[in-house]
């Protein structure tokens, strides 16, 4: 059954690449931050699937750490980094 979990992990990685190619679009900084949060939540799923597909249970711990620290980055953004609504961006 590890073929199945690796296939789903590949599908989620395709999702991530699609989000990366259109990544970091405006109009506000929060829209860009949401790309990083999407990578956090999808990365947890990919890591759990990889832990099953490759037979390394320790990767579940990595997924837990990733979930926790992506949330810390999101809180740091909302509380400390975001001061203005629309900012100048040359190539939007």
């Amino acid at each position: 059954m590890s073929t199945m979990s690796l296939g789903v992990a590949l599908f989620l990685l395709v999702n991530l690449v699609a989000a990366l190619v259109t990544a970091a679009r405006g109009p506000t900084p929060a829209d860009r931050m949401l790309t990083a949060l999407l990578f956090g939540s999808t990365g947890v799923g990919v890591l759990a699937l990889l832990a099953h597909a490759m037979g390394i249970p320790a990767l579940v711990d990595v997924a837990l750490t990733l979930a926790l620290l992506a949330a810390i980055a999101g809180i740091a953004f909302a509380r400390r980094a975001w001061h203005g609504g629309h900012e100048e961006s040359p190539d939007d």
């Binding site: 990685l13 990544a23 860009r32 990578f39 990365g43 890591l47 390394i56 990595v62 992506a70």
Partner: peptide
Amino acid sequence: ILFIVFGLLLTLVWSRLA
């Protein structure tokens, strides 16, 4: 933002390398 994304992808690379 892209640096954070890069770190997450690098995490996936390390776990893929066992």
